[in-house]
Amino acid sequence: MSGYNFAYLDEDTKRMIRRAILKGLAVPGYQVPFASREMPMPYGWGTGGVQVSAAVLVPEDVMKVIDQGADDTTNAVSIRAFFQKTAQVAVTEATGEATLIQTRHRIPERPLTEDQILVYQVPIPEPLRFLEPRETETRKMHALAEYGLMHVKLYEDIARHGEIATSYAYPVKVADRYVMDPSPIPKFDNPKLESAAIQLFGAGREQRIYALPPWTPAVSLDFEDHPFEARKAPGCCGICGAEDSYLDEVILDDAGGRMFVCSDTDYCRSRVAAAEDAA
């Protein structure tokens, strides 16, 4: 794409985003305000993640983009093509080969390594937003580490349903200080937040960036008598047989036939390939 800078954004904008990323890494879980730009894709399509990736990418990177765990969902295809065009980076679908992964709603099944960066697309970065819509109020709560409201909400769930009825975007407490929204990943993925990789979170419309340095404690909120449990649909993948991966439900016919398949398409593909090699 001629006429545009490396990785699309101008250098002023990238510097501004980079400064925000450093603050995010220095204060893990704190949402750093940044002057998000209009991107050539709509808000809600991952503009925060795209801006963070654009600010972090180097020409030598190998990039992977997933949406719902899959490399071939249309928006993942579109974002991957954007960076191929604007940053000329190599791309891959193999989790193990990628140096930078941009994701929406999932953490890959395969554990990430020290040489990898995971960039999340975040719709609503404020974990307290649905309990308190006013930014001025939630900012005070974070300043005072006053998270009682969140515990009340979770406890009301238990009173009503017998358990915490939050199944995704499950809040975590980071480094024993800030309560953070891990983006709408299923709570099955929460234990993977403590990772060897650098994890960066970008919310474009809401103008926030936050981060988890490697190995930062990210503890899912719970109660002693109702400990956090990572959950997924019971059963195994109908394609690769995995029992340990998060499953998507696919409706096969109008008679109620359905099957479950891995949401992480690369994980599924590599298991099938390994089984074929072994055979």
Binding site: P42, Y43, G44, W45, D67, Q68, G69, T73, N75, H105, R106, P123, S167, Y168, A169, P184, I185, P186, K187, F188, R231, K232, A233, Y246, L247, D248, E249, S263
Partner: peptide
């Protein structure tokens, strides 16, 4: 954006 895929989260809710 709510027309974009949300099947991972929906699956979590279904379960």
């Amino acid at each position: 954006h709510i027309k974009l895929p949300h099947y991972v989260d929906f699956q979590a809710e279904l379960e």
